[in-house]
């Protein structure tokens, strides 16, 4: 009766990634909801302001980004709640696989199933708001670089509010203020490009943010998950 001594983070990441992606594929309906939500919110803005093409082109990046924020927020509930309810989460905390790896894999799967689709449908936003090809390109790159940060920061909030009655509202209150820098640099990138300043600075800051969040947030998320059980 001996225990296996070492489990690497790669094993944990791949386990969580494979499992959560398969779960996501099996419940495609849920995936569609967040995506549809994004498109509906985006479409509401022209109706609430006015359809002046020049105005729409100016506000498009901001609207795309705010909608991405909200869609991510909507999908965050799914990240830990189901696993919490059916007891899988406690098995994850007790697993010999390293928890930061499991959490990292789950967040990655969450991003692939919610953030990445947003990037892929963003050309629709460009059509609706009359964005040019260059602007669309920058918007897509900014979403590609920035939405992982949204998933990673959101995971901390989701872990902190785990199992609480007011969780959805509380999650929004905790997470949205933290999203401000991502929003600024994400939407700012497109605007900077449009005004001829070049989006390089914004985009590299977003990339740096993703790297930084990738290093720091799993620790906070794991701590928050353990706190929820202790």
């Amino acid at each position: 009766m001996t225990e296996r001594e070492f489990f690497g983070p790669g094993e944990a990441i791949s386990w969580a990634l494979r499992r959560d992606l398969r779960l996501a594929l099996r419940s495609r309906g849920e995936l569609g909801v967040a995506l549809l939500f994004f498109l509906i919110v985006v479409s509401l803005f022209p109706l609430s302001v006015n359809p002046d093409p020049k105005l729409l082109r100016t506000i498009a990046p901001g609207i795309a980004w705010v909608s991405a924020l909200l869609a991510t927020l909507l999908a965050l509930g799914r990240l830990f709640n189901n696993d919490y309810a059916d007891g899988t989460l406690e098995q994850m905390l007790l697993s010999p696989l390293p928890l930061p790896g499991i959490v990292g894999g789950k967040v990655l799967a969450h991003w692939i199933s919610t953030g990445l689709p947003l990037v892929l449908v963003s050309p629709l936003v460009a059509v609706q708001f009359g964005l040019g090809g260059g602007e669309l390109g920058v918007l897509m790159v900014s979403l590609l670089l920035g939405t992982p940060i949204l998933s990673m920061l959101g995971a901390i909030g989701a872990a902190l509010t785990l199992g609480l009655r007011a969780a959805p509202v509380l999650l929004a209150l905790l997470v949205l203020p933290l999203y401000v820098p991502v929003l600024i640099f994400g939407a700012g990138a497109v605007e900077a490009h449009a005004s001829g300043l070049g989006a390089g600075g914004h985009l590299s800051l977003l990339a740096a943010g993703t790297l930084l969040a990738g290093l720091a947030t799993p620790w906070a998320t794991c701590t928050a998950l353990r706190i929820a059980y202790e």
């Binding site: 225990e3 296996r4 398969r22 309810a85 059916d86 007891g87 098995q91």
Partner: peptide, 15 residues
């Protein structure tokens, strides 16, 4: 590494 816990929740995924 050394303990397995078998609780009330079955940790079974419906999907």
């Amino acid at each position: 590494q050394g303990v397995i816990y078998f609780g009330h929740a079955t940790a079974v995924k419906d999907e």
